[in-house]
Design a protein around this nucleic acid. Structure first.
Lengths: 245, 245
DNA sequence: CATCGCTGTGTATGTCATGCACTGAGTGCA
DNA sequence: TGCACTCAGTGCATGACATACACAGCGATG
Protein backbone atom coordinates (compact mmCIF):
# COMPACT_ATOMS: atom_id res chain seq x y z
CA UNK A 1 0.00 0.00 0.00
CA UNK A 2 2.11 2.94 1.14
CA UNK A 3 5.79 2.77 1.61
CA UNK A 4 6.72 0.64 4.51
CA UNK A 5 8.14 2.64 7.31
CA UNK A 6 11.56 1.05 7.43
CA UNK A 7 12.40 2.56 4.06
CA UNK A 8 15.43 4.71 4.52
CA UNK A 9 16.09 3.60 8.02
CA UNK A 10 19.24 1.84 6.92
CA UNK A 11 20.58 5.14 5.74
CA UNK A 12 19.75 6.77 9.02
CA UNK A 13 20.97 4.06 11.30
CA UNK A 14 23.68 2.52 9.16
CA UNK A 15 26.55 4.89 9.60
CA UNK A 16 26.06 6.54 12.88
CA UNK A 17 29.75 6.27 13.55
CA UNK A 18 31.25 6.94 10.18
CA UNK A 19 31.37 10.71 10.01
CA UNK A 20 30.53 11.34 6.35
CA UNK A 21 32.10 10.35 3.05
CA UNK A 22 31.15 13.71 1.53
CA UNK A 23 32.82 13.82 -1.87
CA UNK A 24 34.45 16.99 -3.09
CA UNK A 25 32.06 17.45 -5.94
CA UNK A 26 28.92 15.88 -7.24
CA UNK A 27 25.92 14.85 -5.27
CA UNK A 28 25.79 13.36 -1.84
CA UNK A 29 23.08 12.36 0.54
CA UNK A 30 23.73 15.19 2.91
CA UNK A 31 23.81 17.76 0.14
CA UNK A 32 20.50 16.54 -1.16
CA UNK A 33 18.91 16.59 2.24
CA UNK A 34 20.31 20.00 2.98
CA UNK A 35 18.91 21.40 -0.22
CA UNK A 36 15.56 19.79 0.39
CA UNK A 37 15.36 21.29 3.85
CA UNK A 38 16.17 24.70 2.45
CA UNK A 39 13.41 24.36 -0.09
CA UNK A 40 10.96 23.26 2.57
CA UNK A 41 11.98 26.05 4.91
CA UNK A 42 11.35 28.71 2.36
CA UNK A 43 8.52 27.27 0.29
CA UNK A 44 6.85 24.78 2.56
CA UNK A 45 6.45 21.08 2.08
CA UNK A 46 4.47 21.50 -1.09
CA UNK A 47 7.48 23.13 -2.72
CA UNK A 48 9.57 20.03 -2.17
CA UNK A 49 9.71 18.13 -5.42
CA UNK A 50 12.51 16.02 -6.74
CA UNK A 51 12.77 18.26 -9.76
CA UNK A 52 13.10 21.42 -7.72
CA UNK A 53 15.75 20.02 -5.45
CA UNK A 54 17.76 18.64 -8.31
CA UNK A 55 17.57 21.93 -10.12
CA UNK A 56 18.77 23.80 -7.07
CA UNK A 57 21.77 21.49 -6.95
CA UNK A 58 22.44 21.74 -10.65
CA UNK A 59 21.67 18.12 -11.50
CA UNK A 60 18.91 16.30 -13.22
CA UNK A 61 15.96 14.98 -11.34
CA UNK A 62 16.92 11.38 -11.71
CA UNK A 63 20.36 11.91 -10.31
CA UNK A 64 18.78 12.15 -6.89
CA UNK A 65 17.61 8.59 -7.15
CA UNK A 66 21.20 7.41 -7.10
CA UNK A 67 21.32 8.46 -3.48
CA UNK A 68 17.75 8.17 -2.31
CA UNK A 69 15.32 5.37 -2.91
CA UNK A 70 12.18 7.43 -3.03
CA UNK A 71 10.81 10.78 -2.14
CA UNK A 72 9.32 9.32 0.98
CA UNK A 73 12.70 8.24 2.13
CA UNK A 74 14.01 11.70 1.46
CA UNK A 75 11.28 13.20 3.60
CA UNK A 76 12.28 10.91 6.41
CA UNK A 77 15.88 11.98 6.05
CA UNK A 78 14.83 15.61 6.03
CA UNK A 79 12.89 15.10 9.20
CA UNK A 80 15.73 13.49 11.00
CA UNK A 81 18.26 16.01 9.83
CA UNK A 82 16.26 18.81 11.31
CA UNK A 83 15.06 17.16 14.47
CA UNK A 84 18.28 17.27 16.39
CA UNK A 85 17.97 17.48 20.13
CA UNK A 86 19.41 20.55 21.84
CA UNK A 87 22.13 19.90 24.33
CA UNK A 88 20.34 21.44 27.28
CA UNK A 89 18.04 18.46 27.34
CA UNK A 90 20.96 16.15 28.01
CA UNK A 91 21.38 17.11 31.61
CA UNK A 92 18.85 15.40 33.80
CA UNK A 93 16.41 17.41 35.83
CA UNK A 94 15.25 16.44 39.26
CA UNK A 95 11.87 18.10 38.81
CA UNK A 96 10.06 15.99 36.28
CA UNK A 97 7.47 18.65 35.58
CA UNK A 98 9.99 21.34 34.92
CA UNK A 99 11.96 18.88 32.84
CA UNK A 100 9.04 18.03 30.63
CA UNK A 101 8.19 21.68 30.26
CA UNK A 102 11.70 22.37 29.06
CA UNK A 103 11.44 19.45 26.71
CA UNK A 104 8.21 20.85 25.33
CA UNK A 105 9.67 24.27 24.91
CA UNK A 106 12.51 22.81 22.88
CA UNK A 107 10.08 20.84 20.77
CA UNK A 108 7.99 23.92 20.19
CA UNK A 109 11.00 25.86 19.00
CA UNK A 110 12.14 23.05 16.76
CA UNK A 111 8.70 22.55 15.25
CA UNK A 112 8.35 26.22 14.55
CA UNK A 113 11.83 26.57 13.13
CA UNK A 114 10.78 24.08 10.43
CA UNK A 115 7.05 24.24 10.38
CA UNK A 116 6.78 21.82 7.47
CA UNK A 117 7.57 19.03 9.91
CA UNK A 118 4.06 19.10 11.27
CA UNK A 119 2.53 18.45 7.89
CA UNK A 120 4.70 15.56 6.87
CA UNK A 121 2.60 12.58 5.94
CA UNK A 122 2.63 10.84 9.27
CA UNK A 123 3.96 7.35 9.19
CA UNK A 124 3.58 5.75 12.53
CA UNK A 125 5.49 5.91 15.76
CA UNK A 126 8.91 7.54 16.14
CA UNK A 127 11.71 5.57 14.58
CA UNK A 128 14.52 7.80 13.37
CA UNK A 129 17.59 8.31 15.56
CA UNK A 130 16.74 11.85 16.48
CA UNK A 131 13.12 11.03 17.13
CA UNK A 132 14.23 8.35 19.50
CA UNK A 133 16.68 10.71 21.11
CA UNK A 134 13.81 13.05 21.85
CA UNK A 135 11.91 10.14 23.27
CA UNK A 136 14.84 9.12 25.38
CA UNK A 137 15.27 12.59 26.83
CA UNK A 138 11.63 12.79 27.73
CA UNK A 139 11.71 9.40 29.38
CA UNK A 140 14.72 10.49 31.36
CA UNK A 141 12.77 13.42 32.74
CA UNK A 142 10.39 10.92 34.30
CA UNK A 143 13.13 8.91 35.90
CA UNK A 144 12.42 9.67 39.54
CA UNK A 145 8.67 9.61 39.34
CA UNK A 146 8.06 6.07 40.39
CA UNK A 147 5.99 5.45 37.30
CA UNK A 148 6.23 2.12 35.56
CA UNK A 149 8.11 2.10 32.31
CA UNK A 150 4.88 1.55 30.46
CA UNK A 151 3.41 4.57 32.19
CA UNK A 152 6.37 6.65 31.19
CA UNK A 153 6.12 5.54 27.60
CA UNK A 154 2.45 6.41 27.56
CA UNK A 155 3.09 9.82 29.04
CA UNK A 156 5.83 10.61 26.56
CA UNK A 157 3.67 9.54 23.67
CA UNK A 158 0.87 11.69 24.98
CA UNK A 159 3.00 14.77 25.45
CA UNK A 160 4.81 14.39 22.15
CA UNK A 161 1.59 14.00 20.24
CA UNK A 162 0.16 16.98 22.01
CA UNK A 163 3.07 19.15 21.03
CA UNK A 164 2.93 18.02 17.44
CA UNK A 165 -0.76 18.66 16.95
CA UNK A 166 -0.64 21.92 18.79
CA UNK A 167 2.22 23.11 16.66
CA UNK A 168 0.26 22.05 13.61
CA UNK A 169 -2.74 24.01 14.71
CA UNK A 170 -0.53 26.95 15.49
CA UNK A 171 1.00 27.05 12.04
CA UNK A 172 -2.31 26.33 10.36
CA UNK A 173 -3.81 29.33 12.06
CA UNK A 174 -1.48 31.59 10.20
CA UNK A 175 2.00 31.93 8.83
CA UNK A 176 2.97 33.87 11.93
CA UNK A 177 0.52 32.14 14.25
CA UNK A 178 -0.63 35.62 14.93
CA UNK A 179 -3.65 36.64 16.91
CA UNK A 180 -5.26 38.04 13.81
CA UNK A 181 -6.18 34.73 12.29
CA UNK A 182 -7.50 33.57 15.62
CA UNK A 183 -9.68 36.64 15.61
CA UNK A 184 -10.78 35.87 12.06
CA UNK A 185 -11.70 32.39 13.11
CA UNK A 186 -13.56 33.75 16.05
CA UNK A 187 -15.70 36.14 14.03
CA UNK A 188 -16.28 33.49 11.40
CA UNK A 189 -17.55 31.16 14.07
CA UNK A 190 -19.66 33.89 15.55
CA UNK A 191 -21.46 34.34 12.28
CA UNK A 192 -22.08 30.69 11.60
CA UNK A 193 -23.17 29.36 14.94
CA UNK A 194 -26.76 29.82 15.92
CA UNK A 195 -28.01 29.18 19.42
CA UNK A 196 -30.62 26.74 18.22
CA UNK A 197 -28.31 24.13 16.84
CA UNK A 198 -25.23 24.87 18.92
CA UNK A 199 -26.37 26.11 22.30
CA UNK A 200 -23.26 25.32 24.28
CA UNK A 201 -20.98 26.54 21.54
CA UNK A 202 -22.95 29.74 21.18
CA UNK A 203 -22.61 30.36 24.89
CA UNK A 204 -18.88 29.82 24.71
CA UNK A 205 -18.53 32.18 21.78
CA UNK A 206 -20.58 34.86 23.45
CA UNK A 207 -18.43 34.54 26.52
CA UNK A 208 -15.43 35.26 24.36
CA UNK A 209 -13.93 31.82 24.80
CA UNK A 210 -12.51 32.01 21.29
CA UNK A 211 -11.19 35.53 21.55
CA UNK A 212 -8.06 36.86 23.00
CA UNK A 213 -8.62 39.57 25.53
CA UNK A 214 -8.45 42.85 23.62
CA UNK A 215 -5.67 44.12 25.82
CA UNK A 216 -3.48 41.08 25.32
CA UNK A 217 0.14 41.77 24.63
CA UNK A 218 1.75 40.64 21.44
CA UNK A 219 3.22 37.68 23.22
CA UNK A 220 -0.09 36.64 24.68
CA UNK A 221 -1.60 36.68 21.22
CA UNK A 222 0.76 34.02 20.03
CA UNK A 223 -0.95 30.70 19.95
CA UNK A 224 0.06 29.08 23.14
CA UNK A 225 0.44 25.48 24.13
CA UNK A 226 0.52 25.95 27.86
CA UNK A 227 -3.13 25.40 28.69
CA UNK A 228 -3.33 21.91 27.31
CA UNK A 229 0.11 21.02 28.54
CA UNK A 230 -0.74 22.10 32.06
CA UNK A 231 -3.80 19.86 32.00
CA UNK A 232 -1.78 16.93 30.79
CA UNK A 233 0.94 17.46 33.36
CA UNK A 234 -1.65 17.78 36.10
CA UNK A 235 -2.99 14.45 34.97
CA UNK A 236 0.46 12.95 35.05
CA UNK A 237 0.93 14.30 38.51
CA UNK A 238 -2.23 12.58 39.62
CA UNK A 239 -0.95 9.35 38.18
CA UNK A 240 2.37 9.72 39.92
CA UNK A 241 0.65 10.27 43.24
CA UNK A 242 -1.58 7.33 42.60
CA UNK A 243 1.30 5.03 41.80
CA UNK A 244 3.16 6.20 44.88
CA UNK A 245 0.24 5.95 47.28
CA UNK B 1 -0.47 29.55 -0.66
CA UNK B 2 -2.79 26.69 0.11
CA UNK B 3 -6.51 26.90 -0.30
CA UNK B 4 -8.06 29.18 2.18
CA UNK B 5 -10.14 27.33 4.66
CA UNK B 6 -13.48 28.96 3.91
CA UNK B 7 -13.51 27.26 0.51
CA UNK B 8 -16.62 25.15 0.36
CA UNK B 9 -18.08 26.45 3.53
CA UNK B 10 -20.85 28.16 1.64
CA UNK B 11 -21.93 24.80 0.33
CA UNK B 12 -21.92 23.33 3.80
CA UNK B 13 -23.61 26.14 5.61
CA UNK B 14 -25.71 27.57 2.82
CA UNK B 15 -28.61 25.22 2.69
CA UNK B 16 -28.94 23.70 6.06
CA UNK B 17 -32.68 24.00 5.89
CA UNK B 18 -33.37 23.12 2.30
CA UNK B 19 -33.34 19.35 2.29
CA UNK B 20 -31.71 18.66 -1.06
CA UNK B 21 -32.52 19.50 -4.68
CA UNK B 22 -31.30 16.05 -5.77
CA UNK B 23 -32.16 15.78 -9.47
CA UNK B 24 -33.50 12.55 -10.91
CA UNK B 25 -30.50 12.00 -13.09
CA UNK B 26 -27.15 13.54 -13.68
CA UNK B 27 -24.67 14.64 -11.14
CA UNK B 28 -25.33 16.28 -7.84
CA UNK B 29 -23.22 17.37 -4.96
CA UNK B 30 -24.44 14.65 -2.68
CA UNK B 31 -23.91 11.96 -5.26
CA UNK B 32 -20.38 13.12 -5.82
CA UNK B 33 -19.61 13.22 -2.15
CA UNK B 34 -21.19 9.85 -1.59
CA UNK B 35 -19.11 8.28 -4.32
CA UNK B 36 -15.98 9.93 -3.03
CA UNK B 37 -16.61 8.59 0.44
CA UNK B 38 -17.12 5.12 -0.94
CA UNK B 39 -13.85 5.32 -2.77
CA UNK B 40 -12.05 6.54 0.30
CA UNK B 41 -13.64 3.89 2.48
CA UNK B 42 -12.46 1.09 0.27
CA UNK B 43 -9.21 2.42 -1.15
CA UNK B 44 -8.06 5.01 1.33
CA UNK B 45 -7.51 8.68 0.78
CA UNK B 46 -4.87 8.11 -1.85
CA UNK B 47 -7.45 6.41 -4.03
CA UNK B 48 -9.56 9.54 -4.13
CA UNK B 49 -8.92 11.28 -7.40
CA UNK B 50 -11.30 13.34 -9.43
CA UNK B 51 -10.90 10.95 -12.31
CA UNK B 52 -11.75 7.89 -10.28
CA UNK B 53 -14.82 9.42 -8.74
CA UNK B 54 -16.08 10.66 -12.05
CA UNK B 55 -15.53 7.27 -13.61
CA UNK B 56 -17.42 5.56 -10.83
CA UNK B 57 -20.34 7.88 -11.48
CA UNK B 58 -20.13 7.46 -15.25
CA UNK B 59 -19.15 11.01 -16.05
CA UNK B 60 -16.03 12.76 -17.17
CA UNK B 61 -13.58 14.17 -14.71
CA UNK B 62 -14.38 17.75 -15.48
CA UNK B 63 -18.06 17.29 -14.86
CA UNK B 64 -17.31 17.21 -11.17
CA UNK B 65 -16.07 20.76 -11.31
CA UNK B 66 -19.56 21.95 -12.11
CA UNK B 67 -20.52 21.05 -8.57
CA UNK B 68 -17.31 21.39 -6.65
CA UNK B 69 -14.78 24.18 -6.83
CA UNK B 70 -11.74 22.10 -6.14
CA UNK B 71 -10.64 18.79 -4.80
CA UNK B 72 -9.88 20.39 -1.50
CA UNK B 73 -13.44 21.54 -1.21
CA UNK B 74 -14.60 18.06 -2.01
CA UNK B 75 -12.47 16.66 0.77
CA UNK B 76 -14.06 19.08 3.16
CA UNK B 77 -17.51 18.00 2.04
CA UNK B 78 -16.52 14.38 2.43
CA UNK B 79 -15.38 15.02 5.94
CA UNK B 80 -18.53 16.72 6.95
CA UNK B 81 -20.75 14.14 5.32
CA UNK B 82 -19.16 11.43 7.37
CA UNK B 83 -18.73 13.22 10.64
CA UNK B 84 -22.32 13.21 11.75
CA UNK B 85 -22.89 13.15 15.46
CA UNK B 86 -24.71 10.16 16.93
CA UNK B 87 -27.95 10.90 18.71
CA UNK B 88 -26.89 9.52 22.05
CA UNK B 89 -24.63 12.51 22.49
CA UNK B 90 -27.61 14.83 22.36
CA UNK B 91 -28.87 14.04 25.81
CA UNK B 92 -26.88 15.84 28.44
CA UNK B 93 -25.00 13.93 31.07
CA UNK B 94 -24.65 15.04 34.64
CA UNK B 95 -21.28 13.37 35.04
CA UNK B 96 -18.91 15.38 32.91
CA UNK B 97 -16.25 12.71 32.95
CA UNK B 98 -18.56 9.98 31.84
CA UNK B 99 -19.99 12.34 29.28
CA UNK B 100 -16.63 13.10 27.76
CA UNK B 101 -15.74 9.44 27.76
CA UNK B 102 -18.89 8.68 25.81
CA UNK B 103 -18.06 11.48 23.47
CA UNK B 104 -14.61 10.05 22.93
CA UNK B 105 -15.98 6.61 22.33
CA UNK B 106 -18.26 7.96 19.64
CA UNK B 107 -15.39 9.84 18.05
CA UNK B 108 -13.26 6.74 18.13
CA UNK B 109 -15.92 4.74 16.36
CA UNK B 110 -16.47 7.43 13.80
CA UNK B 111 -12.79 7.88 13.11
CA UNK B 112 -12.31 4.17 12.67
CA UNK B 113 -15.37 3.75 10.51
CA UNK B 114 -13.70 6.11 8.02
CA UNK B 115 -10.07 5.96 8.84
CA UNK B 116 -9.11 8.23 5.96
CA UNK B 117 -10.39 11.13 8.03
CA UNK B 118 -7.30 11.14 10.13
CA UNK B 119 -5.01 11.62 7.19
CA UNK B 120 -6.85 14.47 5.57
CA UNK B 121 -4.55 17.41 5.02
CA UNK B 122 -5.36 19.30 8.16
CA UNK B 123 -6.64 22.76 7.62
CA UNK B 124 -7.06 24.55 10.87
CA UNK B 125 -9.66 24.55 13.58
CA UNK B 126 -13.07 22.92 13.26
CA UNK B 127 -15.39 24.81 11.00
CA UNK B 128 -17.88 22.53 9.27
CA UNK B 129 -21.39 22.09 10.70
CA UNK B 130 -20.78 18.61 11.94
CA UNK B 131 -17.42 19.46 13.39
CA UNK B 132 -19.03 22.25 15.32
CA UNK B 133 -21.81 19.95 16.43
CA UNK B 134 -19.20 17.66 17.90
CA UNK B 135 -17.65 20.64 19.60
CA UNK B 136 -21.01 21.73 20.92
CA UNK B 137 -21.78 18.35 22.38
CA UNK B 138 -18.44 18.19 24.11
CA UNK B 139 -18.88 21.65 25.54
CA UNK B 140 -22.26 20.64 26.82
CA UNK B 141 -20.72 17.78 28.75
CA UNK B 142 -18.74 20.36 30.69
CA UNK B 143 -21.77 22.44 31.52
CA UNK B 144 -21.91 21.84 35.24
CA UNK B 145 -18.22 21.89 35.92
CA UNK B 146 -17.84 25.49 36.94
CA UNK B 147 -15.11 25.98 34.36
CA UNK B 148 -14.92 29.22 32.49
CA UNK B 149 -16.01 29.09 28.90
CA UNK B 150 -12.42 29.57 27.81
CA UNK B 151 -11.43 26.63 29.97
CA UNK B 152 -14.09 24.49 28.40
CA UNK B 153 -13.00 25.46 24.93
CA UNK B 154 -9.44 24.59 25.77
CA UNK B 155 -10.41 21.26 27.21
CA UNK B 156 -12.51 20.35 24.22
CA UNK B 157 -9.74 21.28 21.84
CA UNK B 158 -7.34 19.21 23.86
CA UNK B 159 -9.54 16.16 23.97
CA UNK B 160 -10.54 16.38 20.33
CA UNK B 161 -6.96 16.69 19.20
CA UNK B 162 -6.00 13.81 21.38
CA UNK B 163 -8.61 11.56 19.85
CA UNK B 164 -7.64 12.54 16.35
CA UNK B 165 -3.95 11.90 16.75
CA UNK B 166 -4.51 8.73 18.67
CA UNK B 167 -6.80 7.42 15.98
CA UNK B 168 -4.18 8.35 13.41
CA UNK B 169 -1.53 6.46 15.27
CA UNK B 170 -3.86 3.53 15.66
CA UNK B 171 -4.54 3.28 11.95
CA UNK B 172 -0.93 3.96 11.05
CA UNK B 173 0.13 1.05 13.18
CA UNK B 174 -1.68 -1.32 10.92
CA UNK B 175 -4.74 -1.79 8.78
CA UNK B 176 -6.43 -3.54 11.66
CA UNK B 177 -4.59 -1.71 14.42
CA UNK B 178 -3.64 -5.14 15.47
CA UNK B 179 -1.16 -6.06 18.12
CA UNK B 180 1.12 -7.58 15.54
CA UNK B 181 2.37 -4.35 14.12
CA UNK B 182 2.90 -3.05 17.62
CA UNK B 183 5.00 -6.09 18.25
CA UNK B 184 6.90 -5.48 15.03
CA UNK B 185 7.57 -1.93 16.09
CA UNK B 186 8.68 -3.16 19.45
CA UNK B 187 11.22 -5.60 18.08
CA UNK B 188 12.42 -3.07 15.54
CA UNK B 189 13.03 -0.63 18.35
CA UNK B 190 14.73 -3.26 20.41
CA UNK B 191 17.23 -3.86 17.64
CA UNK B 192 18.02 -0.22 16.97
CA UNK B 193 18.30 1.25 20.40
CA UNK B 194 21.57 0.87 22.22
CA UNK B 195 21.97 1.67 25.87
CA UNK B 196 24.79 4.07 25.20
CA UNK B 197 22.89 6.61 23.21
CA UNK B 198 19.41 5.94 24.56
CA UNK B 199 19.73 4.85 28.15
CA UNK B 200 16.24 5.71 29.32
CA UNK B 201 14.66 4.34 26.20
CA UNK B 202 16.65 1.15 26.44
CA UNK B 203 15.46 0.71 29.99
CA UNK B 204 11.88 1.19 28.94
CA UNK B 205 12.20 -1.29 26.10
CA UNK B 206 13.80 -3.87 28.33
CA UNK B 207 10.99 -3.42 30.82
CA UNK B 208 8.56 -4.26 28.03
CA UNK B 209 7.02 -0.82 27.96
CA UNK B 210 6.46 -1.18 24.24
CA UNK B 211 5.12 -4.69 24.34
CA UNK B 212 1.73 -5.99 25.08
CA UNK B 213 1.68 -8.61 27.78
CA UNK B 214 1.96 -11.96 26.02
CA UNK B 215 -1.25 -13.17 27.59
CA UNK B 216 -3.28 -10.19 26.47
CA UNK B 217 -6.64 -10.94 24.99
CA UNK B 218 -7.47 -9.93 21.47
CA UNK B 219 -9.33 -6.90 22.73
CA UNK B 220 -6.46 -5.79 24.89
CA UNK B 221 -4.18 -5.95 21.90
CA UNK B 222 -6.20 -3.34 20.07
CA UNK B 223 -4.52 -0.03 20.25
CA UNK B 224 -6.24 1.75 23.04
CA UNK B 225 -6.81 5.41 23.74
CA UNK B 226 -7.75 5.11 27.37
CA UNK B 227 -4.39 5.70 29.00
CA UNK B 228 -3.86 9.14 27.54
CA UNK B 229 -7.48 10.06 27.91
CA UNK B 230 -7.47 9.15 31.58
CA UNK B 231 -4.47 11.39 32.13
CA UNK B 232 -6.14 14.24 30.35
CA UNK B 233 -9.37 13.83 32.25
CA UNK B 234 -7.49 13.64 35.51
CA UNK B 235 -5.90 16.93 34.59
CA UNK B 236 -9.27 18.41 33.79
CA UNK B 237 -10.53 17.22 37.12
CA UNK B 238 -7.69 19.00 38.83
CA UNK B 239 -8.58 22.16 36.99
CA UNK B 240 -12.22 21.85 37.96
CA UNK B 241 -11.33 21.44 41.60
CA UNK B 242 -8.99 24.37 41.36
CA UNK B 243 -11.60 26.63 39.81
CA UNK B 244 -14.11 25.57 42.42
CA UNK B 245 -11.82 25.90 45.42
C1' DC C 1 -39.20 30.81 -32.07
C1' DA C 2 -34.85 32.87 -30.14
C1' DT C 3 -31.99 33.26 -26.33
C1' DC C 4 -29.83 32.07 -22.17
C1' DG C 5 -27.90 29.48 -18.73
C1' DC C 6 -26.80 25.13 -16.95
C1' DT C 7 -24.60 20.72 -17.28
C1' DG C 8 -21.59 17.78 -19.23
C1' DT C 9 -17.68 16.80 -22.85
C1' DG C 10 -13.12 16.94 -25.12
C1' DT C 11 -8.90 18.48 -25.21
C1' DA C 12 -4.89 20.52 -23.38
C1' DT C 13 -1.38 22.00 -19.96
C1' DG C 14 1.75 21.67 -16.34
C1' DT C 15 3.49 19.20 -12.43
C1' DC C 16 4.73 15.23 -10.35
C1' DA C 17 7.24 10.64 -9.09
C1' DT C 18 9.61 7.30 -11.08
C1' DG C 19 11.27 3.36 -14.55
C1' DC C 20 14.77 2.23 -18.08
C1' DA C 21 18.44 2.48 -21.24
C1' DC C 22 22.48 4.73 -21.95
C1' DT C 23 27.11 7.18 -21.34
C1' DG C 24 31.35 8.58 -19.63
C1' DA C 25 34.66 8.53 -16.01
C1' DG C 26 37.15 6.18 -13.06
C1' DT C 27 39.30 1.75 -11.02
C1' DG C 28 41.08 -2.77 -10.33
C1' DC C 29 42.85 -6.67 -12.68
C1' DA C 30 45.25 -9.42 -16.43
C1' DT D 1 48.58 -1.56 -21.80
C1' DG D 2 44.06 -3.09 -22.28
C1' DC D 3 39.74 -4.90 -20.56
C1' DA D 4 35.87 -5.40 -17.63
C1' DC D 5 33.22 -3.63 -14.31
C1' DT D 6 30.99 -0.28 -11.35
C1' DC D 7 29.22 4.07 -10.22
C1' DA D 8 27.22 8.66 -11.00
C1' DG D 9 24.65 11.20 -13.82
C1' DT D 10 21.70 11.94 -18.16
C1' DG D 11 17.72 11.79 -21.34
C1' DC D 12 13.68 10.13 -22.44
C1' DA D 13 9.34 8.17 -21.39
C1' DT D 14 5.19 6.98 -18.86
C1' DG D 15 1.29 7.42 -16.29
C1' DA D 16 -1.11 9.89 -12.45
C1' DC D 17 -2.93 13.90 -11.28
C1' DA D 18 -5.55 18.65 -10.79
C1' DT D 19 -7.36 21.91 -13.40
C1' DA D 20 -8.13 25.53 -17.34
C1' DC D 21 -10.79 26.52 -21.50
C1' DA D 22 -13.74 26.23 -25.34
C1' DC D 23 -17.62 24.13 -26.84
C1' DA D 24 -22.22 21.49 -27.27
C1' DG D 25 -26.70 19.92 -26.13
C1' DC D 26 -30.90 20.84 -23.67
C1' DG D 27 -34.53 22.77 -21.18
C1' DA D 28 -36.81 26.90 -19.62
C1' DT D 29 -38.10 31.45 -20.38
C1' DG D 30 -38.68 35.69 -22.98
Amino acid sequence: MNDKLPAGLDLLWGRLDEPAPEPRQGLSLSRIVRAAVEVADTGGLEAVSMARIAERLGFTTMALYRHVKSKNEMLLLMLDSVASVPAELDEPCDDWRLGLQRWCRSQWLMLHAHSWIVQLPVTGPPITPNQLTWTDRALRMLHDTGLTEADKAGVVLLVANYMLTTARLSTDLGPAASGESVAAYSTLLGGLVDAQRFPALRTAIDAGAFDYPPDATEEERQFDYSFGLDRILDGVETLIRHRAG
